[in-house]
Design a protein around this nucleic acid. Sequence first.
DNA 1: TCCTGTTATCGTTGATCTACGATAGACGGT
DNA 2: ACCGTCTATCGTAGATCAACGATAACAGGA
Lengths: 114, 114
Amino acid sequence: MVKRSSTAKLAAKKKCSTDPVKLTPDPTAEEFAKLAWAIAHPARVQIVRLLIGREACVCGEIVDCLPLAQSTVSQHLKILKESGLIQGEVDGPKVCYCINPPQLEKLKSFVKAL
Amino acid sequence: MVKRSSTAKLAAKKKCSTDPVKLTPDPTAEEFAKLAWAIAHPARVQIVRLLIGREACVCGEIVDCLPLAQSTVSQHLKILKESGLIQGEVDGPKVCYCINPPQLEKLKSFVKAL
DNA sequence: TCCTGTTATCGTTGATCTACGATAGACGGT
DNA sequence: ACCGTCTATCGTAGATCAACGATAACAGGA
């Protein structure tokens, strides 16, 4: 996506040096964007809210709560899991999902710091 | 972002009419997702942070701060403007962008309520 | 072992995103 | 009026997303 080095461009750009340019390379921007993207879909917002409100929930219940096919919900769960916002632990034939509080707090602190 | 197929397809789908639409309307989820989507990209995160830190900024400065083409930055600014997070006012040949505090607060409250 | 129920993954289709260069439009200065 | 600067939009190409049905993987019970 953004592959060109911003730092290189910064180094070469001296003309507007009147400001103490603090346009940080922002390694956190990537992480922030990834977390924001995890909840950048109504279904995923609902899933996160559901899990926050219920502490834990098996996949089937989540599917029943959304007007989406099971495979679609599973994909959303995968995205949320990859972002770290939720966790899933196998419980027999079922999978129980729950919120991952540290990552949720990280998202909150990112937004709060805006 | 996703409203098209869900609603349209549900209306046209008669075969699973046994259970009334149980989809949680959750109008706020849509709005929340839209706001989250606005900052779900590293470049847009940086733009928002830049504007928060500088109160106001003309388009050209923002372009200079990112390793992206002017047209690409303009598109990101358009997305942010459509989300309501930022505003742009014409100032002669330039356009001065600034944060829209109420919308930013709305995003913050959404996240805080999680 | 076979079957049942639960969940993840595959494969596909259409829509959207992201990036860029090229170009058009608007404004101020000469 | 002309020209140069600044910004938005157009058009395009490639990548990714979102949705679905079909199918595979997996654990537990008959």
